[in-house]
């Protein structure tokens, strides 16, 4: 408790907590759908695009969030389209796009400013990167993402579970797929500054993966992912403050621990079930 009050006395840590909780929640919710649709790598690809966009914005002195959110949203839209028409294999497309945008980002920064701390913070994440204005934008956008997600929850479920059925019964699947892509793009850009381009996809993948070990209902998986995301984020922040480790990396390690914990619980549960059946 003492550590927490200590931490919250810093304004920049307060900001980081606020933004981090919202962004973790958004990415966990969207992550369930992405993981189940086999789109886990899209989060990773988008973070690299986002890195490219942010370094261009930085080099030319544009507002980073306002520039990169539209760019990443467009990239997300096209990556999903590619996945749909299957002429180019989507994993290859994602790998190509992410490498290319990383390359563009690196060239632009080395020509303009050189690899400085700002760029490094986009790579590995830094809570110091959060400025007052970013906090306002981040929270507003996160709230929009959360509201849209709740509002379209059943449709997202149907599209995730069975796209051809949804399409046949008249749900506008491409509209909702685009919506998911754009929401993911926004979340990735927002989360990247804290987690870093290299680690942001863990926010999307880990909560869903862990929850799916234990829960058998879509609604429970969603709720549990949200809770895991918030707990792991806070735990990661505290660890990072206490042991002086980078925030992003600490959060990922906590996620990994939770994942193993859930795996063990699952194992124990199946063993118990088996022995119960044997007794009968």
């Amino acid at each position: 408790m003492h550590i927490l009050t200590d931490m919250l006395s810093f304004a920049f840590i307060q900001r980081a907590f606020l933004v981090g909780i919202f962004v973790s929640l958004c990415s966990a919710l969207l992550g369930v759908s992405l993981v189940l649709k086999r789109y886990s790598m899209i989060g990773d690809g988008l973070s690299h695009v986002s890195f490219g966009a942010l370094s261009i914005a930085l080099a030319f002195g544009w507002a980073p969030l306002k520039f990169s959110i539209p760019v990443v949203a467009i990239a997300a839209f096209f990556l999903l389209r590619i996945t749909e028409n299957a002429k180019v294999k989507s994993d290859a497309a994602i790998a190509a796009v992410s490498a290319a945008s990383l390359a563009i980002g690196i060239i632009v920064t080395s020509l303009k400013t050189g690899i400085n701390t700002d760029v490094a913070s986009y790579m590995f994440g830094s809570i110091l990167a959060m400025k007052q204005e970013d906090v306002v934008i981040s929270i507003l956008l996160s709230v929009v993402v959360l509201i849209l997600f709740c509002f379209c929850y059943h449709k997202i479920f149907a599209i995730t579970f069975d796209e051809s059925f949804a399409k046949a019964t008249g749900v506008h699947t491409s509209f909702y797929n685009t919506l998911i892509a754009i929401l993911t793009a926004v979340t990735v850009v927002l989360g990247m500054r804290m987690m870093g381009a290299l680690l942001i996809s863990s926010l999307i993948i880990f909560p869903a993966m862990s929850s799916m070990r234990l829960f058998k209902r879509f609604s429970f998986v969603i709720i549990s992912s949200g809770i895991i995301a918030i707990i792991c984020f806070c735990a990661g922040m505290i660890t990072s403050y206490q042991f002086d480790t980078p925030v992003g990396a600490s959060i990922v390690i906590i996620y990994l621990a939770i994942f193993f914990l859930f795996c063990i619980i699952q194992k124990i549960k199946t063993i118990c079930k088996k022995s119960a059946v044997n007794k009968k």
């Binding site: 649709k37 449709k155 059925f165 019964t169 209902r217 879509f218």
Partner: peptide
């Protein structure tokens, strides 16, 4: 419509009720 099953569905965490209700979408 009853489409062919996809591989993704085989390990999908959802209850029967959730799936049946999604027919009303």
């Amino acid at each position: 419509y009853l489409p062919q099953q996809t591989p993704a569905q085989r390990d999908f965490p959802a209850s029967v009720q959730e799936i049946v209700c999604s027919g009303f979408l």
